[in-house]
Every structure is written in structure tokens, then in C-alpha cells.
Design a protein around this nucleic acid. Structure first.
Length: 423
RNA sequence: GGAGAGAUGGCAGAGCGGUUGAAUGCACCGGUCUUGAAAACCGGCGUACUGUGAGGUAUCGGGGGUUCGAAUCCCUCUCUCUCCA
């Protein structure tokens, strides 16, 4: 969430920045400034009354000690009017407070300077394309047909056990999942990320911390009995490790990675684009998360992008990188790079990774800060990215590495799979 | 699911209605001393909001109540621990 102080002091730049998302923040920002002013006025008044009451209480205490009961009683009668006033003001202040939070929750993050203005994916900027589209001397088939042909992923069986979007991986299909997870984790470790295995259910406070609540309430599986949520991404438990933390110095660079299953209700998603592995309710993902000094976050983002590039290259996949435009950038993100792999059989680009920089948008909710050299506290920057999510990578591997003999496993994966061909 | 215990500053741990934002110890930071370090001694040391500032306010798991006054009493919720099933 944006900080109220920032809205007070940089109103114009916030409004201008949000315009890039095609988001007109004028009304909300103006309301915020008005309500915030009222809040501060009431709060000051309230505090003055509290101060008076505190003084009176101390005086009464002293009088009682000295045995001056009558004087003490006289002083007591003075407090009742003040107390009434205090109670009224407190209600007022609480209401204004709640209003401010409600307004702040509605404001998305201000995009970074280099984010292009735009409404939809058509306005995204293609910043890099590596490799070229593979040509086939036979007709390539989509991954869901490959899965059936080699009996490696069974979608119908998943429907029987759970429902649509919960596939069953089998034989070499299951082994491939395990191999990819191990490969991604090993690569992340080589890049200096510390591996975690976090819980895959989280409490409400954690969901608020990373912004899943209140924005994406309906997208998570929720166990109402215990008020726990199934995580939509490892970003949630990993980032929340640092909720309510003040790092002791300016010298830090926290790099975490973790493999978890991810659960998404995907309410509203339907149609042919959700076919096969393209969109699932449960999938596996290795996530990378970083907590950085504000002066280092842009460099960290670059490193994360390089890391994902390296993974895709080792897997021999043809990909492109998009800098998302304002309208396509996620609510909490200031700058996002999407990685897409071309699927020859489906004749379209598939998003396989999304790497984002959040600036202080998450840390302000998380209360994740560091001590500056002059002993002040300042919010950290957070970043995260998929490195990588499995389903679409599996789809890309199956489709792009298919041959009449079977699907060829990339060299880098073979030591994890133990086989080099799916047939 | 049942029974009990508990939640206080970075940690440990006092306080159980009034000069308590909170003893004490440890940790940490600064200083004295020392060739340097250790020890010893002196001083400092939570967070947040608000105010140009002195300061003010809030905060002892969350919320509510009693009281002139609550870390301390009452209610309630949450969480943790121990034992039993």
C-alpha cells in the first residue's frame, strides 16, 4: 500500500504515475488528503484532552496519598466532561482512520518511470527475444495430446479425484516434475538464494502482508473453520518471514527461494486458453524472493531477470521478455517483466515467469524496515519472481522438444530425470 | 476433542491499581582506561503517530469494560506450551 505521507507530499506525481495504469486517482487522492487533514486535526484535539486527563489523574493520585480526600473528589468531578469529549473524539478518529485505510487499499502501486503507459497486453514492450521459432518437418501436436500419447499427465483422472485443473502426473511425467523442481532449486542456490520449505497454508495476517487480501479475496482457497488460506504462490509465506522485522543496518541483501505447490481458484477463467496445463488450480513453482535496500532494488531486479534468462536458455527454450505497461502491471508491482515462451503447437506465446519489483508497496503493509546509519527506520524494497512455474514450462518443453521419436529432454535436466527421451 | 498453564522491551525475567515506558541481567552502541584487546567503570539503548521545536499521545498478545487513574481487576477473542484421548 502507498504511504499516506507520500500522498501528502507527492500528490501530483502519484496521480500522474497512476495515470500510466489508466487509473484516475484524482478523486481518491483528494479525498485522502481531506480525510487525512481531518484525522490529524481530531487526533491532535484528542491527544490534548488525553494529556489533560493524564495530568488530572496524577494530581488526584497525589491528593489521595496526602489524604486530601475532599480536594481529590473535587478534581474528579472535573474529569467527567473531559472524558465524554475524549470518547466522542476517539470514535471520530477511529472512523477517519478506517476511511483512510479503505482509500489506501484502493490505490495500486505507482509504476516505475520506465513503465510504458497502456491499457492492455498490446501496450507491453518487447525488450528482448532470444532464439527463434522452431520449425517442424511434421505437424507438431499440443501438449495435452502429447501427455495422452505417452501417458504422462492424466487430466481426466484428476477430475475424478478432485476436479478440473488438478492433473495427475504419472511415470516420466511425475519424474519430470521432480527433476524440474530440483533443477530450479539448484540453480537458485548457485545464484545465492537460501532455500526454504515454508508452510503452504497461511493465516490472514500473512495474506494482508503481501497484498493477497483484501484485493484477491476470491482467488484463494480458504478454510473458514481455521481461517487459513492455501497459498497462491510461495511469495506469501517467504516474504512474510520478514513481516514486522527491522533489519539492524543498511547492509543487507536477502535472497530466498522455495518450492511449493500453489493453489488458485481462478474464478472467472474459462475457455480454450485454459486447456491442458495452461491454467491449473494446483501447480508447482519455485519462487525467488528478495528484500533489498531501496538503492539496490533495480539492480536486484536485473539480476533476477538474468537468472530466469539463464534457466530458459539451459532448457533450450525460445523466449521473449516483455516490460509490462501500466495497465497490465499487477496491482502491487511497480515494474514487471514477463517471460513468454512460444508454443509452436498452440501457435501462441505462453507466460512462464513474471518478475516484479514492489518498492515499498509490500513492505509498508509488512512493516518490513531497516535501520539507517543515522538510526532512523526506513522501509525496505521487496521483489519476487517465478523461477520457474512448472506447468507452462512442461507444456513448452513437450511441445517445442517433440520429435517423431518422442520428447527430447534438455541436457541440463538429464541428470535429474535419469532419462533423455519421453516415449 | 478434554484438562491445565501462559502471552511484558532484541533475549531472559520482575512488576499484580497511582511519580512504571516499565526493575534487574544478558546482548548491543558510545566513552574512560589500555600499545591493542579483555576486564572494570561511566553513559546510552523499543516502536508508531503527531508537532518547526520543547514536547504530546499511544503501545506490556488483539478487542471491550470497571476506575479520576490499568501491564496490574473483569469480560471476550486469538495464539503458544504441557498433559490426556
Amino acid at each position: 500500500m502507498l504511504e499516506i505521507q507520500r500522498i501528502r507530499t507527492e500528490k501530483e506525481s502519484v496521480i500522474a504515475g497512476l495515470k500510466k495504469r489508466n487509473f484516475d486517482a484524482t478523486e481518491i487522492v483528494e479525498s485522502l488528503i481531506t480525510v487525512d487533514q481531518q484525522w490529524r486535526n481530531s487526533k491532535t484535539e484528542l491527544e490534548n484532552i488525553s494529556a489533560e486527563l493524564n495530568i488530572l489523574a496524577k494530581e488526584i493520585g497525589n491528593l489521595m496519598k496526602q489524604g486530601k480526600i475532599e480536594e481529590a473528589n473535587a478534581a474528579k468531578s472535573k474529569t467527567s466532561e473531559l472524558k465524554e469529549k475524549e470518547a466522542g473524539l476517539k470514535i471520530n478518529v477511529d472512523e477517519l482512520d478506517a476511511q483512510i485505510i479503505q482509500f489506501l487499499y484502493q490505490l495500486p502501486n505507482v509504476p516505475n518511470e520506465i513503465v510504458p503507459t497502456g491499457k492492455s497486453e498490446e501496450d507491453n514492450i518487447n525488450v528482448l527475444e532470444v532464439g527463434r521459432k522452431r520449425t517442424f518437418d511434421f505437424t507438431p501436436i499440443p501438449h495435452w495430446e502429447i501427455c495422452k500419447k505417452f501417458d504422462i499427465i492424466d487430466f481426466e483422472l484428476g477430475v475424478k479425484i478432485t476436479g478440473a485443473g488438478f492433473p495427475v502426473y504419472k511415470g516420466k511425467g511425475a519424474k519430470l516434475q521432480r527433476a524440474l523442481i530440483a533443477f530450479f532449486l539448484d540453480e537458485a542456490e548457485k545464484a545465492g538464494y537460501t532455500e526454504y520449505t515454508p508452510p503452504i497454508m497461511v493465516n490472514e495476517a500473512s495474506c494482508y502482508g503481501t497484498g493477497q487480501l483484501p484485493d484477491k479475496e476470491g482467488q484463494m482457497y480458504h478454510d473458514k473453520r481455521d481461517n487459513l488460506y492455501l497459498i497462491p504462490t510461495a511469495e506469501v509465506p517467504l516474504t512474510n518471514i520478514y513481516r514486522d522485522v527491522i533489519l539492524p543496518s543498511e547492509e543487507f541483501s536477502i535472497k530466498m527461494t522455495g518450492y511449493t505447490p500453489c493453489f488458485r481458484r481462478e474464478a472467472g477463467a474459462y475457455g480454450s486458453h485454459v486447456r491442458g496445463l495452461n491454467r491449473l488450480h494446483q501447480f508447482d513453482k519455485v519462487e525467488i524472493v528478495r528484500i533489498e535496500h531501496p538503492s539496490n532494488s533495480e539492480k536486484a531486479l536485473e539480476e533476477m531477470v538474468d537468472h530466469v534468462k539463464n534457466l530458459l536458455e539451459k532448457l533450450g527454450l525460445h523466449y521473449r521478455i516483455l516490460r509490462l505497461c501500466g495497465g497490465d502491471t499487477g496491482f502491487a508491482s511497480a515494474l514487471t517483466y514477463d517471460f513468454e515462451v512460444y508454443s509452436a503447437a498452440q501457435e501462441k506465446w505462453l507466460e512462464v515467469s513474471s518478475v516484479s519489483m514492489f518498492n515499498t508497496f509490500q513492505s509498508s503493509r509488512l512493516k518490513l524496515r531497516f535501520k539507517t546509519n543515522d538510526k532512523k527506520t526506513q522501509l525496505c524494497h521487496t521483489l519476487n519472481g517465478s523461477a520457474l512455474a512448472l506447468p507452462r514450462i512442461v507444456a513448452s518443453l513437450l511441445e517445442n522438444h517433440q520429435t517423431p521419436q518422442g520428447v527430447v529432454i534438455p541436457e541440463a535436466l538429464r541428470k535429474f530425470t535419469g532419462f533423455d527421451l519421453i516415449d
